Amino acid sequence: MNGDPIWQNEYPFTSRWHEADGHRYHYLNEGAGDQTILAVHGNPTWSFYWRNAIQRFRDSHRVVAVDHIGCGLSDKPQDYDYCLETHAANLGSLIEAADLRRITLLAHDWGGAIGLLALTQHRERFERIILLNTGAFPPPYVPWRIGVLRCPILGPLAIRGLNAFAGPAVTMAMSRQTLSPTARAGLLAPYKNWSDRVAINQFVRDIPMSPRHRTWQPLEKLEAALPSLDHLPTRLIWGMKDWCFRPECMERIQKSMPHAETVPIDDAGHYVMEDAPDQVLDAIDEFLVRTNDRAALPATDGPAA
């Protein structure tokens, strides 16, 4: 990474490390307080995606933002079991090791499934859910732009060799505006070469196309568990111009979680935190403040998944 100031000025945080599954798992732990915001990124981003949320909320909350193994500043082992359940287990191990409590899950993209799966295994530690453009079920469709990257030989060559996933994402995941050079540099900084992009490729490979795929059943079970989370205040903040996690994904989550509030942002794309930062942060802030009294009540566990 070599201290590139073009993006590090927007990431003025102290790196921390946790050993997860035998590897160094990078995370940020900013602010203090008895309530925690646990920010979980998707593919192909990293904790840099949450920089504005950390700056906004660290005066009132403990804000923890993780980098999945293979992503961001975490170790990038080349021979590793990159899959949904492994990522969720790593997140769960950090939750326990750092003794995170009174957690608000803040998750985007694959981070939604990873974070929710970890939540179902540590229910007593969570108080709220905030999801941005994500899914928690077997995919009802796979966009052709992603589907073509799953070809056994051409897919890795494109994703890892030509940077044909993370590179185009900084443009294609936006709708309202263009990413600044600083944001673009920051999002791409950990993914400079073939080795760096190992997890990006494996995330794409982990999209289940049929019930025979190893990740289909965990996603199926996760969706079945969503109604049991109705004791947790939930808000869905959605960029409605997302061509990947389209509005029907928000609607499908809401069918399982009818108590969830929705905040659609009509002209924002998949990188909704980058495309509409003020609207997203204000929606998070209002939700945290309004639900604080309810969250302060004694926690009750939902039914077992």
Rank of each mutant, 00 (worst) to 15 (best):
M1L: 13
P5D: 12
P12V: 14
H18L: 05
E19I: 02
H26V: 09
H26F: 08
D34G: 05
H41G: 10
N43E: 03
N52Q: 15
D59L: 13
H61G: 04
D67N: 08
L73T: 08
C83T: 01
T86Y: 00
A89Y: 00
G92E: 04
A97N: 08
A98L: 10
I103M: 01
L105H: 01
G112Q: 09
I114Y: 10
G115H: 11
T120I: 07
R128V: 10
I130P: 11
L131T: 10
N133S: 08
N133Q: 11
N133I: 12
A136E: 08
P143T: 08
R145P: 05
I146M: 02
L149V: 02
L149S: 00
C151V: 12
C151P: 05
I153V: 06
A158I: 06
P168I: 01
L179N: 06
G186P: 00
P190K: 03
S195Y: 12
R197K: 03
V198E: 03
A199M: 01
F203M: 03
R214E: 15
Q217Y: 13
P227D: 07
S228I: 07
S228W: 10
D230H: 13
H231W: 07
H231I: 09
L232E: 03
P233H: 02
T234W: 11
M240G: 07
M240L: 13
W243A: 03
C244K: 03
P247A: 03
E251W: 07
I265N: 02
I265W: 05
D266M: 09
Y271T: 07
D278N: 08
Q279S: 14
E286T: 15
V289E: 10
T291W: 09
R294A: 08
